[in-house]
């Protein structure tokens, strides 16, 4: 592996970030051009709603893939892309929501309220979006400092629930062919499964390694197998 990938300099990281930023904009650019040129098919509003929804889900999963990628590749700087990826997930979600409210329903608030209340797939998508808002709002370094690392972290764990809701949203909106939502569900299951597995590994490690007692301020109970 080239050295700059192992341990990039600050300037190289900035460059990487810029490249990823523009790459993340490409789907939006593609859709915007398609809209302008009339190449989004016979039902461009549907195309836009669906594409923005699917990209939201993809960005959620990409964001959740950062930790595993970092862990198994040893590329620790990947973590520095995570906030941007998460914010792109939120941006595409907001675009998806706007496509629905503006283009699809044209601010018909009664119809929108009915949709959210009557149609489980919309309710679940709406819940996922609402839960994303506090995460986007607390994505800055200042917010982390304000909340404190631990509280910030437990708040941001809701991204797991959001991703699950997003897959359910997709699963329920499909008429008959569940192949695509199934594939996304599988990817999510792997990403969540890895977390569960890491926890298990951590638990086992804690059991097997005698903790250096002087660092702990409480008595340590150790379970020893016979």
């Amino acid at each position: 592996m080239p050295n700059f990938l192992r341990a990039p300099s600050g300037a190289q990281i900035a460059l990487l970030k810029a490249a990823v930023f523009f790459a993340c904009l490409l789907p939006a650019l593609d859709l915007a051009l398609g809209w302008r040129n009339g190449t989004l098919g016979a039902n461009p509003i549907e195309t836009l709603t669906r594409a923005s929804g699917e990209w939201t889900l993809r960005f959620l999963l990409i964001t959740l893939a950062v930790s595993p990628l970092r862990r198994y590749s040893g590329l620790h700087w990947l973590l520095r892309l995570r906030r941007m990826l998460g914010l792109f997930a939120f941006t595409y979600a907001a675009a998806h929501f706007m496509a629905y409210i503006w283009l699809d329903q044209f601010f018909d608030w009664r119809a929108i309220a009915h949709d959210i209340l009557d149609r489980p797939f919309i309710a679940v998508g709406f819940a996922a979006f609402v839960l994303l808002v506090p995460l986007a709002a607390t994505s800055s370094k200042a917010a982390i400092r304000r909340l404190g690392g631990r509280r910030w972290q437990s708040l941001h764990r809701s991204v797991y629930a959001i991703a699950i809701l997003a897959v359910i949203h997709f699963w329920w909106l499909v008429k008959a062919d569940l192949l695509k939502p199934f594939i996304y569900a599988l990817i999510l299951a792997v990403l969540l499964g890895l977390r569960a597995w890491w926890r298990e590994l951590e638990r086992r490690r804690q059991l097997s390694v005698p903790p250096p007692a002087k660092h702990l301020d409480r008595p340590v109970i150790r379970i020893v197998q016979k």
């Binding site: 016979a42 119809a111 009915h114 149609r119 797939f121 008429k175």
Partner: peptide, 19 residues
């Protein structure tokens, strides 16, 4: 009579923006 997934009160005529 709405469908569980779609309200049937309105429709989008292909080629039009508003329902």
């Amino acid at each position: 009579v709405s469908h569980p997934r779609w309200s049937q009160a309105t429709e989008r005529r292909i080629g039009e923006i508003r329902k």
